[in-house]
């Protein structure tokens, strides 16, 4: 149990001493019309590494991701990525999603069903560039363990394979930030551990920051550098993911047992 906590404790980047943030989000997002309206106010700052958005379903985690990706416009606030203002309500700035350079892995992987795995991975690359980056794409697919699946159609893949393809597709365009919405939701326990490791290594190798939504404390502890909890339509101040350990001791123990077996 303790080894899990220690392994992560060096990567925690919370607090005032942090260098200029890779991602700074301070927005209010509203969805729906008055009777069913929902608003969430988000304060989130990520120096480097992975921010985990944690909390029960329906508390605004996914719409926060959409605001970061740019497919949902916040009603107020500001969003800055690596010094570039992507959204600022008071200045009237709203960079369109296709100009943000943010890789997005949605909840249900959303692979293009009409395209092969290889076509899915290169979907975001301009036709002219595709040929030139072929070796790079091959290396990426190899890295994610999908090198042999290039010609397969998405409906023939397992849940874990689909998620790897969705990850490769997002990484192929060399994003400045990766945004993942419950990436392990439809995967069994052993597959989850393998995929978590792949994701962690991939991010580290590229020195890429990520924002990840999950409601699994094991995911949060294993991947997160910063933990942002959602509660009643707002975010709580950032914490270290290790604060989840006492609350979810049983879940961690189950995960450790599953890994050893």
């Amino acid at each position: 149990m303790t080894e899990l906590v220690e392994a992560r404790s060096d990567g925690i980047a919370v607090g005032a001493a942090a260098p200029p943030a890779a991602l700074a989000v301070s927005v209010e997002v509203r969805v729906g019309a008055p009777p069913a309206a929902f608003a969430v106010s988000v304060e989130l700052e990520l120096a480097r590494g992975v921010a985990v958005l944690f909390g029960p379903s329906g508390c605004g985690k996914s719409i926060t991701l959409q605001a970061i990706v740019g497919t949902l416009a916040p009603s107020a606030g500001r969003l800055v990525l690596h010094g570039r203002t992507l959204f600022d309500a008071s200045l009237g700035v709203a960079v369109l999603p296709h100009e943000r350079g943010i890789g997005y892995v949605p909840q249900h992987h959303a692979l293009f069903p009409f395209a092969t795995v290889a076509e899915n991975v290169t979907f975001g690359l301009p036709r002219a560039r595709r040929r030139r980056v072929e070796p790079e794409i091959a290396a990426l697919m190899d890295e994610l363990g999908i090198a042999s699946l290039g010609a397969a159609m998405p409906d023939r893949l397992s849940g874990g394979e689909r998620q790897r393809v969705a990850l490769a597709r997002a990484l192929a365009t060399r994003p400045k930030l990766l945004v993942l919405d419950e990436p392990f939701a439809s995967i069994d326990m052993t597959g989850r551990a393998a995929l978590r490791r792949v994701l962690r290594e991939t991010l580290a190798r590229r020195n890429l920051s990520a924002v990840l939504v999950t409601h699994d404390p094991v995911d949060a502890l294993e991947l997160g550098d910063t933990l942002v909890r959602f509660e009643r339509g707002r975010t709580l101040p950032p914490e270290s993911p290790s604060c989840l350990v006492p609350e979810h001791r049983a879940a961690f123990e189950r995960a450790v047992v599953a890994r050893r077996s």
Binding site: Q66, G70, E99, G101, G103, Y104, A110, G124, V179
Partner: peptide
């Protein structure tokens, strides 16, 4: 979600229409 992913991959409105909507 297909459209959102397409946009995040850098597809403008025209590319989204031709490469995702019409193909689907």
């Amino acid at each position: 979600e297909l459209i959102d992913v397409g946009r995040s991959l850098g597809l403008g409105p025209r590319a989204v229409f031709f490469r995702i909507v019409l193909r689907s």
